[in-house]
């Protein structure tokens, strides 16, 4: 596979490490009343779509950036790649 890194261009997936569902970025508030339930959902409950899937990849043998990659699980087509930090900053701003 090839991941089109937002700043470094197309790079072999061998340079990356896969983590999983991009919702791992949405870590719940530890002080919420139902924090344990929320963390349980966050950590264990995953969608398994046959189609577009947003997932986290880490460019370990590269610029050490975490990426949010939208990959079609049926075709492996990658339709979107973003720097996870930018995504996280956007989320922090909008929340």
């Amino acid at each position: 596979m090839i991941i089109n890194h937002p700043t470094l261009g197309p790079r072999d997936a061998a340079e990356f490490v896969h983590l999983g569902d991009a919702t791992l970025m949405n870590r719940p508030d530890w002080q919420a009343e139902d924090a344990v339930e929320q963390f349980h959902e966050y950590l264990y409950q995953r969608d398994n779509p046959a189609g577009d899937y947003r997932e986290l990849w880490y460019h370990e043998q590269g610029d050490r950036s975490w990426l949010v990659v939208t990959r079609n699980t049926l075709t492996h087509e990658i339709t979107d790649v973003q720097m996870a930090r930018d995504v996280a900053m956007q989320q922090a701003k909008s929340s």
């Binding site: 791992l24 880490y58 050490r64 975490w66 720097m83 996870a84 996280a88």
Partner: peptide
């Protein structure tokens, strides 16, 4: 290696600011 990877995850994805 794993700890470093996790620290970068926390830094970039959980505490981007």
């Amino acid at each position: 290696v794993l700890v470093y990877r996790r620290l970068e995850f926390v830094r970039q994805c959980l505490c981007p600011n």
